[in-house]
């Protein structure tokens, strides 16, 4: 009896154009949507633990070698970092507004906000590339040719830079992957694939993008804001 109703609902939902495709193994759009949401959050859980290993290494070495971390951190450009954080937060806002526009079924607005997100993300990576280049020029990339002018602890300073490149690099690679997805979404949004009843991919991508933003919210103080007063260096 219950299964009969389920079949009926499914048929009704199928004939409804606005909901997008209902995959064969789901009973209802609601179930399909819920599954996607839970799946995305579980995925973010693994992402969190993925970055977690690096955060652990960071915490340990920073506690052990505070001077090395302080002097190395002062080699980063504080105001450039703050500016870049601002850029990323702006892209998070445009992403949130994109989801909002999608939920209202405003196609042009949705495309506009997605493009804005893409451009702001690009600006962030541009600044990042400039910073990397700067480190490259100053031989501050750990490895065989590492040198650090005026750094206090020769042995442990490379650890900071190893973590700096490990963490920001992993973060940047997440943004680059996000770019790929974003381009597809922009194309789909432009061709009118999403409706106010079905815009799950936009929403899921929003979660991903905000997660990447959160990682940066922690990376900024951890990498750029260590002992800017120079206290432990005196």
């Amino acid at each position: 009896m219950a299964s009969h109703t389920a079949v009926a609902t499914k048929a009704a939902a199928h004939s409804h154009p606005g909901y997008g495709e209902l995959r064969h193994h789901f009973e209802s759009h609601e179930q399909q949507k819920d599954s996607a949401t839970i799946g995305m959050w579980v995925f973010l859980l693994t992402e969190l633990m993925f970055f977690g290993g690096l955060f652990l290494a960071y915490f340990i070495y920073r506690q052990w070698y505070p001077e090395a971390f302080a002097s190395a951190s002062n080699k980063t450009d504080l105001w450039l970092g703050a500016f870049n954080t601002t850029v990323l937060i702006c892209s998070s806002l445009t992403m949130a507004l994109a989801v909002h526009a999608a939920s209202k079924g405003k196609r042009i607005l949705l495309v506009g906000f997605l493009v804005a997100t893409l451009l702001l993300g690009g600006a962030f990576l541009g600044v990042k590339a400039y910073e990397y280049h700067d480190k490259w020029v100053h031989h501050e990339i750990p490895g065989d040719h590492f040198e650090c002018e005026g750094c206090h602890d020769e042995v442990h300073t490379p650890l900071f830079f190893a973590l700096y490149f490990g963490m920001t690099g992993l973060h940047a690679s997440h943004m680059i992957i996000g770019f790929g997805v974003l381009l597809v979404l922009i194309w789909q949004a432009w061709s009118g694939k999403f409706t106010e009843k079905w815009y799950t991919p936009i929403e899921m991508f929003g979660l991903y993008w905000h997660f990447v933003d959160i990682v940066w919210i922690f990376l900024f103080p951890l990498l750029y804001l260590i002992d800017r007063t120079g206290r432990s260096l005196l």
């Binding site: 070495y61 052990w64 090395a68 490895g143 042995v155 490379p158 650890l159 190893a162 490149f165 490990g166």
Partner: peptide, 16 residues
């Protein structure tokens, strides 16, 4: 790439 995290020669801790 010799970007070290664990080898004491790079300043790291193998126990980590």
């Amino acid at each position: 790439l010799h970007i070290g995290f664990f080898d004491p020669a790079y300043g790291g801790d193998p126990v980590l």
